[in-house]
Write a protein that binds this DNA or RNA. Structure first.
Lengths: 205, 205
DNA sequence: GTCTATATAGGGATAGAC
DNA sequence: GTCTATCCCTATATAGAC
């Protein structure tokens, strides 16, 4: 079983305005359909149809349907790594939270569709995690739940953090396209402002 | 095809500590499995197995798998109606928002598992809506998106509202069981407080 | 790299016995 | 009200031709 590109799901920035590889075209279509209909309701036949070739052809590029979802998941991992690694998870008191959240806002604005995909296919993605996906678990979800369970924090602090996380998700991934008319920059600024207001009483500057 | 109970999915409060009807036992198990694994990944066989009888028996109580999900959806509708009808959607400026959000917090705290079910099966539920479910559409989601799209509101107000909605969802339905150690009353108070802080600059008292 | 054809399994749904 | 048996369809996945 020969694979044309790497298995990470991200062929990396080879630079230039290259033509999209078939593998990536599959991923793009899959992302669209998985988001609209959900992972399980989307069949490989449907994906292949949109691409103009037959179902079986997909198996040249991916060993299974799960691997398509996994590849999409890895795309997000890639970006998440950058935002998370800049923050020292030790000192999550003080203003480090804001920094983390601001980084999150930026990432979401850049790769919004990926985040929406994840939000709408949580069940399927969690099962991927259980089954294997032995890769490191630096998932956003998992990270946040760890922080929220931190016994060193007060109940108020924990809840506030969860609220702030939600406040970011609300307009950016839970609200569909209602904010399409607002320029990205402005949207980001407004969300950051809200996050700031929420964290103020907990982590005073 | 004779049905033992009403078709609304809610047999209503007949009072007392009655034994749960089979129909409701099915719904309870379904809710659990749909939440854990997602709607599509859950088979009728699986539901029947847990109840100790066979797959086909379910068809005595529900005409299709979709109807099980629909019945669960109607359970939420029932509760939502109360919270929404108290608020005049006309004056969604001023403090009416807070009132609406506070009602929402209360409902979520009471029927949390139902909200989680909905959050984790959005795709499937949206398809239900498209296909039929001709019943009135007083859905929370739909209502909120209407409000968020209201052109009479400023961008800041709209985004703030979405943030507040998210801030409520964050700790209450998106965070799993991390807050199980915090008493319900305290949790509600903390969330309401956060919602208040978020809406302050937009809808001063 | 994409095709056809096919194997195989599982799920939803129906009929009818008890 | 629950069961057995069965139908039918769709989906994933494989084998092998071109």
């Amino acid at each position: 079983m020969v694979k044309p590109t790497s298995e990470t799901g991200l062929s990396g920035p080879e630079g230039g305005a290259e033509q999209e590889s078939t593998r990536e075209r599959i991923l793009d279509i899959a992302m669209e359909l998985f988001t609209e209909q959900g992972y399980e309701k989307t069949s490989l036949r449907q994906i292949a149809e949109r691409l103009g070739f037959s179902k079986a052809a997909i198996y040249y590029h991916f060993a299974s349907k799960d691997e398509i979802l996994l590849a999409l998941h890895m795309r997000l991992h890639e970006f998440g790594r950058g935002a998370l690694s800049t923050v020292d998870l030790g000192d999550l008191r003080s203003g480090a939270w804001l920094e983390l959240l601001n980084g999150l806002v930026e990432q979401i604005l850049r790769h919004r569709s990926l985040f929406v995909l994840h939000e709408r296919n949580r069940a399927a993605l969690e099962q991927l995690h259980r089954q294997g996906h032995d890769a490191e678990h630096e998932d956003l979800d998992i990270l946040f739940r760890q922080v929220l369970a931190n016994p060193a924090l007060s109940a108020r602090e924990r809840v506030r953090l969860a609220c702030t996380f939600g406040a970011v998700m609300g307009p950016l991934v839970l609200s569909g396209e209602v904010f399409a008319d607002i320029p990205t920059d402005q949207l980001g600024a407004l969300v950051r402002e809200a996050a700031h207001d929420l964290l103020l009483p907990v982590a005073p500057v």
